[in-house]
């Protein structure tokens, strides 16, 4: 074997080893780290799910791919934080934020959605990007452009960490109370949303609209009202996501781009599926963090920026409608 061939072979084997062997050795070598990374992926996944949920609720009922979801998360988070800052008790701040998001839903329905009824999806999509611009300018005018720290004490969110399994491993595994809070509260919220969709009259009406809005209209379901409800609902999710995302760093307008991280979750889980958003978020979150940590040696840092899309795309090649999306039937 001559020099170049050997060099090629060693590079190739290094690459393949980095891809298929080293990470698995690392799994076994430091199980504490694996648990740590997976738990982190889970918590990131829950956060993605929360943003994705906002997309899904709106898309399901009105066919609008709401690009303004990211900015709504920021807006909602800042509303809560600013209200607490001026001295409003936390619980009222959240209630007031719900009212604000509701009012916003009414305004959006009146000004944006109603005049654009029956337009193709891409037009509505563009309108929501316009909305995102508007809200960004509006939000900065009201709240100022500076990011604000989330007053976690006032909101009663614990900010410490548990160190567990320290006896078994070299280093204990850290479980952040912030993540646990997000997990529990997020879980409760998802349960509440699913109950609302399945067990209440409005929820049934909402699903009827999602199935066939013409038919829903003809049995007397008021479409504008349903739209207001779904936008409020996604505003509600946004408040929660905004506060929790903000608590991890700061509540500010640069958070809006994080919404883009929820998009692969959407294509993976399907645009119309609530369980898809949850499961998709967790799958993307965990694989992303695993890839970023264990495969950085061969792929380089920052893989988590796009690996979610690749995972989603691979799954899409086999199931074009996503994991839980409705089967697409086309007729000529």
């Amino acid at each position: 074997m001559d020099g170049t061939a050997f060099e090629f072979f060693s590079i190739a084997s290094g690459f393949l080893g980095g891809l298929f062997v080293d990470p698995f050795i690392a799994f076994v070598d430091r199980p504490d780290k694996l648990i740590q990374i997976v738990s982190q992926g889970l918590s990131a996944g829950i956060m993605y799910s929360l943003v994705a949920l906002g997309f899904v609720v709106i898309f399901k009922a009105s066919g609008v791919f709401n690009f303004a979801q990211g900015i709504m998360v920021v807006f909602a988070g800042l509303t809560v934080v600013s209200l607490i800052e001026i001295g409003v008790p936390a619980i009222f701040a959240i209630l007031l934020a719900i009212v604000v998001m509701g009012a916003m839903a009414v305004a959006i329905e009146r000004v944006v959605l109603r005049p654009l009824v029956n337009q193709p999806g891409i037009i509505l999509f563009m309108a929501t990007i316009g909305l995102a611009f508007f809200l960004e300018g509006f939000g900065q005018t009201i709240f100022g452009a500076d990011p604000k720290p989330v007053p976690i004490d006032a909101l009663g969110i614990p900010d410490d960490k548990f160190r567990v399994l320290g006896d078994f491993f070299r280093k204990p595994v850290r479980i952040y109370q912030l993540d646990l809070t997000a997990l529990i509260a997020g879980g409760l919220m998802v349960a509440a949303i699913i109950l609302f969709l399945n067990r209440t009259k409005i929820g049934r009406a909402l699903r009827a609209v999602a199935d066939d809005n013409q038919a829903a209209l003809s049995v007397g379901i008021p479409l504008p009202f349903i739209w207001v409800v779904v936008w409020t609902l996604s505003g509600l999710v946004a408040i929660f996501a905004g506060v929790m995302w903000g608590a991890q760093s700061q509540a500010g307008f640069s958070l809006a781009v994080i919404a883009l991280k929820a998009l692969p979750v959407l294509i993976l889980g399907g645009f119309t599926s609530v369980p898809g958003a949850i499961l998709g978020g967790i799958i993307i979150g965990v694989t992303e963090k695993l890839a970023e940590f264990y495969w950085r040696g061969v792929l380089g840092d920052g893989v988590e920026q796009w690996i979610g899309y690749v995972i989603a795309l691979i799954i899409l090649l086999f199931r074009p409608q996503g994991l839980f999306g409705e089967k697409i039937i086309e007729r000529v």
């Binding site: 780290k33 982190q40 280093k171 991890q248 940590f293 988590e304």
Partner: peptide, 15 residues
Amino acid sequence: KTMQDQRSTWEKIDS
């Protein structure tokens, strides 16, 4: 783009 989500980076530093 995701500078407000540095969890993985800090895990790398920690390890």
